[in-house]
Structure formats: C-alpha cells, structure tokens
C-alpha cells in the first residue's frame, strides 16, 4: 500500500481482569483480544468476521477509544489512540466514528434527529445556527431522508430509516474511518440491502474507509474489499474478498463458510458441512498453541504446542495454520 493507512492496529491485546470474590482467588484475565495486527487503507472496507464472543466488538470499541487495550498500538490517520488523553482522543474522533448494531438504541429518544445529527458539529464548533441546519439538511438528504425529518423524533422512524440517521451522524464530521459494528444485523432482511448499498454509495462519494464487523458472511462478501477472520481474540486468516471466498484456507474459515446456507437445494443436499465439535472455549482459558486446535478437524500434536503465526501465501492470503 503506497498511501498511509487510515487504521493501523499493531499487536493489540485487550484483557479484562477477572473479578475475584471475597475469599475466592482472582481468576485468569479474559483475553478478549489477544495480539491483533491489521491495517486499513483509505477508502477500503475491511470485514471482520467471527462468531459471538470472538472479540470483534471489543476490538472495534478499542479502535474508537472506548476500550483501553492492555498492550499494542492503534493509529487512526497516524494518531495514536492507545494512551491518548481526553483532548487528544476528542481530536482523533474527528477521523473515526462508529455505527452501532441496534439503531433503536443509537439515537437519544428525547432528541429530534436534527439535534442528534447536528450534535457532533455543534459541540465541536464546526457549525451553528442556520449553517448547522443547512449541514444537517444536506446530511439527511445524502442518506436518503428529507430535510424536514430533522424535526422528528427517532420513534417516528422505521429501523432502516433510523440507521440512515445514525449513518448521517457518523459521516457529519467527514471521518476517514467508520467502524460499523454489525450495522445491518438488527434490521429486517428487506432493508439490509438498502443500507449496505447506501454505505457503498457514501464510500464512493466521500472516500471513507470502513471497518465492517459482522458475523454474516453474505453481507461481508457483498461489501468488503478484504476480510479478516477472528477466532478467540486472534486473527486466523486475512485475505482479499475473492481469495477468501474462492479459496478459504484456515480450517476455521472453511467451517464458517460451510455454515452459510446454500440457496440451491440440490447443492445444499450434496455439499459437505463441516460441523465443529464442542463450544467456543472461554476466552479466560485460551487453549495452548493454536487456539483452534480443540475443535479443529485437522489438529495434530504440533497444534497443541506451537501457536502458528499469520504467514503470507501465494495468492495474497495471510493464514495462521500449521497445516493449511
């Protein structure tokens, strides 16, 4: 990549201290994110996939500075997020905003959507009065709403419309990066495509980069340039979209792919399903060696001892597996 990345995550770990009881000894820390390195180029969309509890939401919260990493470095547009004081963090957040999963909870029910969308601009002294109203109207128009909607309250909108409002608020500061934390998983299937297309459309117009967190592979395939697969706080595979979906390599990625329903019933019947054994281990007791070895169909003795590093493959994929 020739240009500087808008997001550079370097060996980030987020451990949460386990609470000890009055007499009980303190348990091991929960290693929600345990050594993740990734980068996003300007205007790029990186998908972050993995099952519930794998640490993808923790990582995205760390990127916007809502969670403090235990170690590592996170740079947004060259500015260090880890250890930034409140003033610095406030400045950094001009460049990184977030879209949340549930639009019903992302907007203050007691504020009109005009107030919500205009707040970042107002509190930062970017616009006020008539200029602010104009900016809000432009933003609402750009996400497919009407300027007169500004006077309404969130409850007067549908889920899809609310998510448009949330997107308008996130883009108001013209950030270089927007973290999308499962932005369509709470929406009706019928409006998902609309919101995804809106995100793509805005990216083309504004050049914003997305860190797109999702557990829905179909959605990720639709929108992302590159995809990172996460398991128990670590990346197991990072690859360009077509490479990942065309030739998945890590056994965990393969298992994820095989879990996606096949629309063709004939192929659905004939294809092989990889069903993982057992549950996701507790992130407070991450298995030794490769974290996936307890559930991996291809695991050997080596996997239990030595943690595989992310290594580049011929087709540009990065895979952390001894056998793939």
């Amino acid at each position: 990549m020739s240009t500087d990345p808008v997001l550079a995550v370097d060996d980030v770990a987020v451990h949460f201290a386990a609470r000890g009881g009055l007499l009980a000894p303190k348990g091991p820390p929960v290693r929600a994110v345990d050594g993740v390195t990734l980068a996003i180029a300007p205007g790029e969309t990186l998908g972050l996939v993995g099952e519930s509890g794998c640490g993808k939401s923790t990582l995205s919260n760390a990127v916007v500075g809502l969670v403090k990493p235990t170690r590592g470095s996170i740079k947004v547009a060259g500015q260090e997020v880890v250890g930034a004081d409140p003033d610095a963090l406030r400045a950094i957040r001009r460049n990184v905003q977030m879209i949340f999963q549930d639009p019903a909870l992302s907007l203050n029910p007691r504020m009109t959507i005009g107030e919500s969308v205009g707040e970042p601009l107002r509190v930062r002294g970017i616009a006020s009065g008539a200029a602010l109203r104009e900016r809000v109207a432009t933003l609402l128009t750009s996400v497919g709403l009407r300027p007169e909607h500004a006077a309404r309250y969130p409850h007067q909108f549908s889920g899809g419309q609310r998510q448009r409002v949330v997107i308008a608020r996130a883009l108001g500061l013209e950030p270089a990066l927007v973290v999308c934390d499962e932005p369509v998983s709470a929406l009706d299937v019928s409006v998902r495509a609309q919101i995804l297309n809106l995100l793509v459309d805005l990216q083309r117009r504004m050049g914003v980069a997305y860190l797109f967190v999702s557990h829905d592979l179909a959605v990720v395939r639709h929108i992302c340039d590159r995809v990172a697969v996460m398991y128990l706080g670590r990346l197991v595979e990072v690859a360009p979209r077509d490479t990942l979906f065309g030739a998945p390599k890590h056994p965990y990625t393969l298992a994820l792919m095989s879990a996606v329903p096949e629309p063709d019933p004939v192929r659905q019947r004939t294809r092989q399903r990889i069903v993982l054994q057992g549950d996701l281990p507790s992130p407070s007791r991450v298995p030794t060696g490769c974290a996936f070895h307890t559930r991996c169909p291809r695991a050997t003795a080596l996997c239990a001892q030595e943690r595989p590093a992310l290594t580049p493959r011929d087709d540009g994929a990065l895979v952390a597996c001894h056998h793939a």
């Binding site: 916007v64 809502l66 406030r90 957040r93 001009r94 990184v96 905003q97 977030m98 949340f100 999963q101 549930d102 909870l105 992302s106 907007l107 203050n108 919500s116 707040e119 970042p120 509190v123 930062r124 949330v166 608020r169 500061l173």
Partner: peptide, 14 residues
Amino acid sequence: SLPYIKAAELGGAG
C-alpha cells in the same frame, strides 16, 4: 451503557 451515549461521546460531547 446504551449506544447513543457512546455515540455522543464519540461525537465529542463533554
């Protein structure tokens, strides 16, 4: 703990 409070914080509200 609700997202709209996080959003306000990210927006730069004191």
